[in-house]
Amino acid sequence: MKKILIVDDNQAQLPLEFLMVVGFSLIITISLVVGLSDSNELNQAMTASRTGALDGSVSDGLAMYPEDAFNEYKKDHLRLLNPSSVKIIKIDYINQGLSPVYRKTKIQLRIHASSPHLADKSDRNCMGDRINFYARKKICESFHTENLTNSFFNPAFSNNYVFTTADVRWE
């Protein structure tokens, strides 16, 4: 069978151009991949923190607590044993730069929540601590780093980031 050549390329200019295009593409792709994987990791951590914060708000809202917290609230925060409305509004983060201790980029999460019927400050602190706890816990579970941190999951680790939480801001 006779093949038809579309272009005469005796000096092999086309392969050379092809190699150059491939070379540039590789350089651009590699540099993009590094940035993209970092962004993807941060995105995954933020999604995990949101899921965890939802867990915490459900626990607070339905007043379903682990045994030790339940016993503590029974003594000092009786109001928290009743259900209440808790809503997660948004989660912000602040990049605090490279942590010299952990040699990872340090990210501080700040969760904004609302609970219009709960006025007492100490009750709100307890609820906020629970929301923060579940947010950090979910990050550790998402990256399988539970064994790297303490029982409060503070700080929470991913591969390239270390996460802490600021007090929940009630709005």
């Binding site: 379903m64 682990p66 044993l81």
Partner: peptide, 8 residues
């Protein structure tokens, strides 16, 4: 499941 809820 290790959690408790209470109704007064």
């Amino acid at each position: 499941g290790g959690r408790r809820g209470y109704s007064f």
